[in-house]
């Protein structure tokens, strides 16, 4: 009798312990699921702080007054290349009006981009900049840029918009060329989600390459 009671007590103890381990491990799994979502802000912070992600979208915005007494380094010439990409199947034309310019660090420069809305209705877009190499993004400072605002163009409307920038003199010596790339996006997410049927593959492959505007 005493022995069977002992066995039952032992069984209950193990059952409780099983429950404890199960709940602990289950909690770990749930926490890790949450960790995946926590990574979204964490990742952004880590990238901002350390700059590990090269395609930095946080190119610097400065006030014109801040760059008034910036020293111009006449001994160096830096080549800035301009690039334009259209995201998804946005029916816009978007290109830089000049392919590249040479500037001295500290010197202000104005260039412009060409926009045209080929859709039969008004469309609002946002341009997102990126600078390569990533080490240069900190030193590429925009005083005025269309990317600071969204652009709404009526059907068929075309426009040129300017970009006033300065590359500061602290740009690392080994960087002689940097590329400024803009990707233009439809900010109406609902519309952007409407995807062409990719199963009609044959025509579509050509369509996609045509959509990417080549630079003049």
């Amino acid at each position: 009798m005493a022995e069977s009671e002992q066995i039952a007590a032992q069984a209950a103890k193990i059952k409780a312990s099983n429950r404890r381990v199960f709940l602990t491990l289950g909690m770990v799994a749930v926490l890790m699921f949450g960790f995946a979502f926590a990574l979204v802000p964490l990742y952004r912070i880590i990238c901002d702080v350390t700059g590990v992600n090269s395609v930095a979208t946080n190119t610097t915005r400065v006030k014109a007054s801040d760059v008034v007494d910036m020293v111009v380094d006449r001994s160096r010439l830096v080549t800035i290349e301009f690039d334009a990409t259209i995201n998804g199947n946005l029916p816009w034309e978007f290109k830089p009006s000049i392919k590249k310019v040479q500037v001295h660090p500290g010197e202000r420069k104005q260039v412009s981009y060409y926009f045209k809305n080929n859709a039969d209705h008004p469309v609002t877009t946002q341009s997102v900049p990126g600078v390569t190499p990533w080490q240069a993004s900190r030193h590429f400072q925009k005083i005025e840029c269309f990317c600071f605002n969204t652009q709404t163009l009526a059907a068929g409307e075309e426009v040129e918009m300017g970009l006033l920038f300065v590359v500061d003199a602290e740009l690392p010596k080994e960087i002689n060329t940097l590329t400024l790339s803009y990707t233009i996006m439809d900010i109406d997410r609902g519309k952007a989600l409407e995807k062409p049927d990719l199963s009609a593959a044959d025509n579509d492959y050509e369509g996609q390459s045509a959509r990417r505007i080549s630079m003049r």
């Binding site: 491990l25 770990v28 799994a29 749930v30 926490l31 890790m32 699921f33 949450g34 960790f35 995946a36 979502f37 979204v40 989600l193």
Partner: peptide, 18 residues
């Protein structure tokens, strides 16, 4: 237990984006 939920989270976000 450590990594499988992270994948589940990732593909869930994919589903949300879609």
């Amino acid at each position: 237990i450590i990594v499988m939920p992270a994948l589940a989270g990732g593909v869930t976000m994919l589903l949300f984006d879609r």
